[in-house]
Design a protein around this nucleic acid. Structure first.
Length: 469
RNA sequence: GGUGGGUUGGCCGAGAGGCGAGGCAACGGACUGCAAAUCCGUGUACACGGGUUCAAAUCCCGUACCCACCUCCA
């Protein structure tokens, strides 16, 4: 079995053949830290986290670089509007993003380079492009440097477009460009911009264009050639197209595979257009646990559009709680001294994941296994193998409820549960007495009373079990 | 104008020529004092119109509607 991924450059599913056997190198375009992360923003984080986990599970020694863009037009504009330094805005939003990722159990990449920390690497690359005749300093004295699209015949290869067919942006300021489609590698500092947002370069003070950072940083940490480059679908053009052109024009092979995750939309539109505060990660986490949101995101294929709704999220959460409930019941049934069973992912699960990260099919196998485990529990059989398989699958998907990443409140919870348990015990005794006396009205009354307090009661062959609803 | 994607049962969401992914909801059954939980069972779903084929949700042609990208975007 080989791992296959849909390569959006060739538009076909291809066997994953790493450049170095046994190793995988992965570069994902992270976010521009300019506003609070919303559900759409974290999708790529979750999707590529699953990719990282699957590569590692399959035994690849994986190097995963995910950058942060901490300097760009929007950051400067927003910071100016908010009357604070641009680096303060970027830093705060970077922390918010890290928090959002943590709350969704998105594992840290190998390294998270920031654009502002790699200006020298970018300047070097730009100089090389000028030397090779693929870039030129603007002739209008602006200090800008542009990539010369006309000198790169392969331009458009990633997004399947021809330069002639492209419509130049309406707001494109031709300034010193030779062609409207040329894009900025370096932006000369303008008087309206803060001094702190500029760095020295052979072309005068300025700041990097958007695309050059990723080419420079991917090269620094992964080398001239690496395996997989990922990001959101909208990055395909222009961002990734330009990254690729820069890299190849500088003589670097760049990535072997390109992966792009699809959108999460609301009301049929991409979130950036219709975003309300209700869809930021902190806001959603007021209503759902991080693990439930992650499950919702993982249960859909990464290349499928997801129309976000709280109703769908609620449905997903209900389904996921069934998986958690199974693990709880099994743990109680098995006790704590049961023999640990080697965790192994079912073949059908692996086959699905190998097929371009088929998480929907993988989740289906997860539910099949849960059903089998529940059947075993009901029949009094040993569910250990099912439990081990479920846990192994959840680990791969980053959805294991027992993962410490889900929070440090366990101790507090334990204390609260102990306290509630002591109070509930008395009521359970009364109810048991009522049931012995066949006083069903009284027994049901106690159950309703607990229910009203947020405590669910189940009668099992081993006696009543309570849980917080 | 160019490029790409989508439309699947009450809902979410897979699949990509032939055995009905899975989840949520609903209904029936088992279990239960009644519930809950769990298990078992129940569905003639593929936007529309043609065509190819022994066989089409899947391939081809056409139509409708929706969405994305074309140098700010996860």
């Amino acid at each position: 079995m080989t791992f296959r991924i849909y390569d959006s450059a060739t538009r076909e599913v291809r066997d994953f053949v790493p450049l170095v056997e046994g190793k995988a190198s992965l570069y994902v375009c992270g976010l521009t830290v300019q506003s609070e992360p919303h559900v759409g923003h974290v999708r790529s984080g979750v999707n590529f986290d699953v990719l990282q986990r699957w590569l590692r599970h399959r035994g690849y020694e994986t190097t995963f670089i995910r950058n942060v863009t901490d300097i760009d037009d929007k950051i400067l504009l927003k910071a100016r509007d908010q009357g604070r330094p641009w680096y303060n805005l970027a830093y705060e939003m970077h922390r918010e993003l890290a928090q959002a990722y943590a709350s969704l159990n998105v594992a840290a990449p190998t390294y998270e380079p920031a654009a502002t920390g790699h200006i020298p690497e970018m300047v070097e690359l730009i100089a090389e492009l000028i030397e090779r005749g693929h870039a030129y300093p603007a002739e209008d004295g602006s200090g800008d440097v542009y990539f010369d699209v006309r000198t790169w015949s392969a331009y458009g290869e990633l997004s399947g477009q021809k330069v002639e067919d492209m419509v130049a942006a309406e707001d494109a300021d031709p300034r010193g460009k030779r062609d409207a489609r040329d894009f900025a590698l370096w932006k000369g500092r303008k008087d309206s911009e803060p001094e702190t947002a500029s760095w020295p370069s052979p072309w005068g003070r300025g700041r990097p264009g958007w695309h050059i950072e990723c080419t420079a940083m991917a090269g620094k940490y992964l080398g001239d050639a690496f395996d997989i480059h990922g990001g959101g679908l909208d990055l395909r053009f222009p961002h990734h197209e330009n990254e690729l052109a820069q890299a190849r024009a500088a003589g670097r092979p760049f990535s072997t595979y390109w992966m792009h995750n699809a959108w999460i939309t609301t009301a049929g539109e991409k979130m950036s257009k219709s975003l309300g505060n209700s869809l930021t990660i902190p806001a959603v986490l007021q209503r759902f646990r991080g693990i439930e949101l992650r499950y919702y995101l993982v249960a859909a294929h990464y290349r499928s559009h997801v129309e976000f709704s709280f109703e769908a999220l609620e449905e997903a959460a209900v389904g996921f709680r069934r998986i958690e409930h199974f693990l709880e019941r099994a743990a109680q049934a098995r006790g704590t001294d049961s023999e640990p069973v080697e965790a192994r992912v079912p073949d059908a699960f692996a086959a699905s994941m190998d097929d371009d990260l088929g998480t929907p099919g993988a989740v289906a196998v997860l539910y099949d296994t849960v059903r089998e485990g529940n059947r075993q529990l009901a029949a009094g059989e040993d569910p250990s193998l099912s439990v081990a398989a479920v846990v192994a699958m959840l680990d791969v998907l980053g959805l294991n409820p027992a993962d410490p990443a889900w929070g440090s409140t366990a101790q507090d919870d334990d204390k609260a549960v102990a306290a509630v348990g002591a109070l509930v015990a008395g009521l359970l005794e009364q109810r048991a007495a009522a049931r012995v006396a066949k006083d069903w009205a009284r027994a049901d009354e106690i159950r309703d009373q607990l229910k009203a307090a947020g405590i669910d009661l189940e009668d099992t062959p081993d006696g009543p079990k309570w849980s917080l609803s």
